[in-house]
Design a protein around this nucleic acid. Structure first.
Lengths: 95, 95
DNA sequence: GACATATTTGCACAAATACGCAAATATCAC
DNA sequence: GTGATATTTGCGTATTTGTGCAAATATGTC
């Protein structure tokens, strides 16, 4: 793994490595359909602006995908992408 | 996954989600035998005190294991533990 | 248009974090 | 013991980060 890939992976892990963000991801895990921020807000007791920022970070790192839906913006997990990246790291670590 | 487990997992991901720490882990990936801090130091251009602190974080999170060896302390990856935790998260995310 | 709802953004602030340097500590070799 | 090597710790600092609040923006309904 070269330096650029390591940087990218570290950014992904950092995005997942914050409690409220991980809680958002776990919440989205349970959802079959994309959810808006207000709904996701319920899983972590922070201001909606904070949720908005966390979701932005997760979107930047490709963890979640955003879709405009009227006045809402609904988010869904990029399940395969994230899972594959985690498994790739797991494989490399296990050697 | 309950709140305590989420906290623990977030801490692990945070430990892995810093570039220099991830570099240390990747360096240890390549090593068959446990390595001391001086050797690991070469993979990330920071002070040895910084490497020491990073290794301490990784040890606290169970990523690496430390063993005293004379005046050195040698570190090795807890390969299976870390890999399994990452795969568990991957599985949950993939649903 | 007015109003409500959903989300983002600007701002300030406190806490966490990564860092380098120097000193302290530990352990080896002599 | 002295000196060399490996590591940790204390301290100061600059940066990042998570947060809440209020204002701004966007889009729906009436």
């Amino acid at each position: 793994m070269d330096e650029a890939q390591r940087h990218e992976l570290a950014d992904l892990l950092k995005a997942l490595g914050e409690f409220n963000r991980l809680s958002l991801v776990c919440e989205l895990c349970e959802c079959e359909t994309p959810q808006n921020a207000m709904c996701l807000c319920s899983c972590c007791s922070v201001d909606s602006s904070v949720v908005s920022r966390h979701l932005k970070v997760l979107a930047q790192e490709g963890v979640v995908q955003m879709e405009k839906k009227g006045r809402e913006r609904v988010y869904s997990l990029n399940r395969n992408d994230v899972a594959n990246k985690l498994r790739l790291l797991a494989d490399q670590i296990e050697g």
